[in-house]
Deep mutational scan, measured.
Amino acid sequence: TTVHLNGVTYTFPNPEEARKFVEKLAKTLNLKVEVHNGTYHIE
């Protein structure tokens, strides 16, 4: 599972880890999250 954040790409072997990371980040920084083909894009 891949996460794109400010031009940096993070790869998680575990989709659940990626989801938790994204949710925590989005909540902390009040960001918008979009998912395209299983890839998270955070703005």
Rank of each mutant, 00 (worst) to 15 (best):
T1F: 06
T1Y: 06
T1Q: 07
T1C: 08
T2W: 10
T2Q: 14
T2G: 06
V3P: 00
V3M: 03
V3H: 00
V3W: 01
V3Y: 01
V3G: 00
V3Q: 00
H4A: 07
H4M: 13
H4Y: 14
H4F: 14
H4E: 08
H4D: 05
L5D: 02
L5N: 02
L5S: 03
N6L: 11
N6W: 14
N6H: 08
N6K: 07
G7E: 05
G7Q: 06
G7A: 05
G7M: 05
V8L: 09
V8E: 07
V8C: 15
V8F: 11
V8M: 10
V8P: 00
T9Y: 11
T9H: 08
T9F: 10
T9L: 13
T9Q: 13
T9W: 08
Y10M: 11
Y10L: 14
Y10P: 00
Y10I: 14
T11C: 14
T11Y: 12
T11H: 13
F12G: 00
F12P: 00
F12V: 00
F12Y: 03
F12E: 00
P13S: 11
P13Q: 10
P13V: 10
P13C: 12
P13Y: 08
P13F: 08
P13L: 10
P13R: 11
P13K: 12
N14G: 10
N14D: 10
N14M: 04
P15A: 13
P15Q: 11
P15R: 10
E16P: 03
E16L: 08
E16K: 07
E16N: 08
E16C: 12
E16D: 12
E16V: 08
E16F: 09
E16H: 09
E16G: 07
E17T: 12
A18M: 04
A18R: 02
A18S: 03
A18W: 02
A18I: 03
A18C: 13
R19Y: 09
K20H: 09
K20I: 10
K20N: 08
K20D: 10
F21P: 00
F21N: 00
F21Y: 06
F21V: 01
F21G: 01
F21T: 01
F21Q: 01
V22L: 04
E23S: 04
E23W: 04
E23I: 07
K24M: 14
K24A: 14
K24H: 14
K24S: 13
L25R: 01
L25W: 08
L25Y: 04
L25D: 00
L25E: 03
A26C: 07
A26G: 09
A26R: 11
A26L: 14
A26E: 11
A26H: 08
K27Q: 15
K27M: 15
K27P: 06
K27V: 11
K27T: 13
T28R: 13
T28Y: 15
T28E: 15
T28M: 10
T28Q: 13
T28P: 04
T28H: 14
L29E: 12
L29W: 09
L29C: 15
L29P: 10
L29Q: 12
L29V: 07
N30D: 09
N30Q: 08
N30T: 06
N30R: 03
N30H: 10
N30E: 08
N30S: 06
L31A: 09
L31I: 14
L31H: 03
K32I: 10
K32H: 08
V33N: 01
V33E: 01
V33F: 11
V33A: 03
V33I: 14
V33G: 01
E34D: 06
E34P: 01
E34R: 08
E34Q: 09
E34Y: 14
E34L: 09
V35W: 12
V35R: 02
V35D: 04
V35S: 03
V35Y: 15
H36D: 05
H36V: 15
H36L: 13
H36T: 07
H36M: 10
H36Y: 10
N37E: 08
N37D: 12
N37Y: 04
G38Q: 04
G38A: 03
G38W: 02
T39V: 15
T39Q: 15
T39M: 12
T39P: 02
T39R: 06
T39A: 15
Y40H: 03
Y40A: 04
Y40F: 09
Y40C: 05
Y40I: 13
Y40G: 03
H41E: 05
H41T: 08
H41L: 09
H41S: 04
H41A: 03
I42M: 06
I42V: 11
I42C: 04
I42G: 03
I42K: 02
E43I: 15
E43P: 02
E43D: 07
E43C: 13
E43V: 15
